[in-house]
Design a protein around this nucleic acid. Structure first.
Lengths: 143, 143
DNA sequence: AAAATCACTTGCATTTTACAAGTAGTTGAT
DNA sequence: ATCAACTACTTGTAAAATGCAAGTGATTTT
């Protein structure tokens, strides 16, 4: 299905401030984790997201997926291996959140106790961020 | 007052994922707007934040300020002009959220209808982002 | 001395979230 | 062909967060 499957839930922008309109979409505890799963962990089904270590509740997951689809950040597709599954993909708009996530990672790594994997990733970033981001970007576009 | 004025509200990290721990602090609709006000609009008092165009509720504002202080993102100081006022400042940790906000602005400008000011800001960013960010960074550190 | 301003707090209704259980379609094994 | 397991959800309900209006006590202005 290459069309939106939900009657778009109206997100009413609180203002025309770009930060505010961004937060109207991804300003919560879960949406960016779903996007993280798709970007960095190759997850792309409902069950994948459910099983993430932060343990999102199933009704919240359904709600966020529908919101993100309405906002044009993700899209639903038929799964190549099973009719029972739905394949979720990042749209271009979703992929363009990559730099936001990268900056969040850098910030957190600087100030919090995080997984070692994050530390090595940030170390690589310090060397040539532009190259790493554009490489990740191409990979995401490709799939 | 150069000390924390709140008994730190325990934020329990959901995981050691850096994105997750970041969202534990700023993953909501309001926190980053308060930080935006301090970063880009020179706001630094309770009343300033209350009067922002998105109209945060006063109890929510109080709660977020206390959470952000607990998380070490902002700090409270005596106001130079009045004992009735409290001066809120970004800490280094707070200032380091600048790149996150900048990426959110760029993303939103690309995909949403935003204020003209944002459009010109993004145009400047396209020319030399690094320079602009480090200049803003220095200004924030200075005050 | 009174009125206005400041940074909040309190009470309450509404909304959102979390948790548990259930459903309908699909798949894999017998 | 049948049944259990898996898939993507939905539903019900309790708990928590949010939004709104009004109030409080300290300070500042008039």
């Amino acid at each position: 299905m290459y069309f939106c499957t939900v009657k778009p839930k109206k997100i009413i922008p609180r203002s025309d401030c770009p930060i505010s309109t961004a937060l109207d979409i991804v300003g919560d505890k879960w949406s960016l984790l779903i996007i993280r799963d798709m970007m960095f962990k190759g997850k792309n089904t409902y069950g994948d997201f459910l099983n993430s270590e932060e343990k999102i509740a199933t009704n919240i997951l359904a709600d966020r997926l529908s919101l993100l689809e309405s906002a044009g950040v993700i899209s639903k597709h038929k799964h190549p291996e099973s009719k029972a599954k739905v394949l979720y993909k990042l749209t271009d708009k979703g992929i363009d959140l990559l730099p936001v996530l990268v900056e969040l990672i850098e910030w957190s790594e600087k100030y919090h106790i995080v997984h070692p994997t994050a530390k090595t990733f940030v170390k690589q970033l310090k060397k040539d961020k532009k190259e790493i981001i554009s490489k990740l970007y191409e990979e995401l576009k490709a799939t």
